[in-house]
Design a protein around this nucleic acid. Structure first.
Lengths: 211, 211
DNA sequence: GGTATGCGGAGAGAATTTCTCCGCTTGGTG
DNA sequence: CACCAAGCGGAGAAATTCTCTCCGCATACC
């Protein structure tokens, strides 16, 4: 495959990830095209229809997710720190997008099941270890962990997304959710005021926000 | 105002709240109409344009939010319990929707500022009291609280929304985020497995999901 | 029981979205 | 360097979706 074709493919997948996360799995492919900065023909040549794009995106993300879990397990001896490391990595990978599109209008074939099982097994390992070490309560399951990650690490809606342009805020709130409002797991730095949130309101048309 | 007119108005506002939350502030009003189960004329008669609808929705929600905060303060002597009570009430009120639409394409007039200030003051009171009582860490601000609520209590994307059809799951995860994964603030009941999450995938076209 | 207010469906016109054809550009190769 | 196949983006046709109005019928209040 030619180098520029590979580049286009990557840009389309990244754009699709953002767009599906923000606008749901029925978002117009047109929006993906605009976000990716390529011509429509480029998308339709590579991915004949919506399903092909979604399938490629999900497969790609799940594989990277499993890799991130394995990496976290290897890099952190402490089980809880390993889990936390993975959760942050999952946020960067937009785990939410994988789930969103995974669940909708996608015939789950053998390949998809395989890559999904691998990711699930890896993450279950992380969670189980942290639980056995007594760092995670017993009444929290895989579903809770995954959904909490999806909830916290989805991009903020609309203009609020500008608050997290650098992706720092999501990590802050991930730590907050992991530790709880009272926890002092690690210092959070300066609090986020409400004024900043309101200020994000006054700037519609920020690049990449309302499209 | 006639009784059926008031009823229609309420149904439209509730539907708009859900739809804007799920599909962003540019969601077609057509979708609101369908969700509300009324005719298009009914919506356009009551709300001449999108802005009128958004304005009415925001005003309504902010007022109810302020009332919920005051209620929580009165009902719970313990400051942390009061804060938690409010957060759960805010989730039921779909606080996220207020924020989403508040921030987008809406000229903030005096009335809106007033109702917003009242809500903010109330919530600041709750947060400040909990912080002074040592139940909330000092490096968490109003913005953090609000955004964490928005993040956790937004409806789950796509088909996952079916998991939370009864609205129980959001309260579970709210408590989880408040207490942290390790906290034993209060028992969480049976853990949510990953299989349930996957199972939610197999049922596209669930009423009210893809629409 | 009368009447004014309100309701929903049908549908016109506008806007958006999907997807293809085609001429130009670019990357890899000898 | 020069060739050429692979790839790219824009213009645009066809289908779909969205906005908003007119009108005959139903329903709430007096």
């Amino acid at each position: 495959m030619r180098a520029d074709a590979e580049r286009s493919r990557r840009r389309i997948l990244d754009a699709a990830c953002e767009v599906f996360l923000e606008r749901g799995p029925d978002a117009p492919l047109d929006a993906v095209v605009r976000r990716a900065g390529v011509g429509p023909a480029t998308l339709y040549r590579r991915f004949p229809d919506r399903e092909a794009l979604v399938r490629a995106l999900v497969t790609d993300l799940l594989a990277r997710l499993a890799a991130a879990a394995a990496e976290a397990r290897g890099a952190e001896p402490d089980p809880y720190r390993a889990l936390r490391r993975f959760v942050h990595a999952a946020a960067d990978l937009r785990m939410g997008a994988a789930i969103v599109v995974l669940l909708e209008r996608l015939v789950v074939d053998a390949e998809l099941v395989a890559v999904r099982e691998r990711a699930v097994t890896e993450v279950e390992g992380l969670l189980g270890a942290a639980r056995e070490a007594g760092r995670v309560r017993a009444d929290v399951g895989m579903g809770d962990l995954v959904l909490l990650c999806v909830r916290v690490s989805r991009p903020l809606p609309g203009a609020l997304a500008a608050l997290d342009a650098d992706g720092e805020l999501v990590h802050r709130h991930l730590d907050l959710a992991l530790a709880g409002l009272a926890g002092a797991d690690r210092p959070m730095g300066v609090p986020l005021g409400f004024d900043e949130v309101i200020a994000a309101a006054g700037r519609p048309g920020e690049p990449g926000v309302g499209e």
